[in-house]
């Protein structure tokens, strides 16, 4: 019981409390990047199928 309460105090006194907050969501960022790139480059569903030569004649 005692150790738990110490742990609590420690957990929030330690800088680790803060570092958790700035954890970078790499997977989410990749997902977001893919979504935006698909939009900008007009790739269908982002399935790696590039819109082949949409250059007008």
């Amino acid at each position: 019981m005692k150790s738990w309460s110490i742990a609590l105090v420690l957990a929030c006194a330690l800088p680790s409390c803060v570092t958790i907050n700035i954890y970078f969501p790499a997977a989410a960022a990749e997902k977001a990047a893919d979504k935006i790139i698909d939009d900008v480059w007009q790739l269908k569903n982002g399935a790696g199928k590039p819109s082949t030569n949409t250059v007008e004649p």
Binding site: L8, L10, A11, A28
Partner: peptide, 24 residues
């Protein structure tokens, strides 16, 4: 034991953050 609980708490915070940041 203390160290373990710190880690546990840290893990709890971390997992919470991951869930919160599921989408950008």
């Amino acid at each position: 034991k203390i160290l373990f609980s710190v880690l546990l708490l840290g893990a709890m915070f971390a997992s919470q953050m991951v869930v919160a940041a599921a989408d950008l």
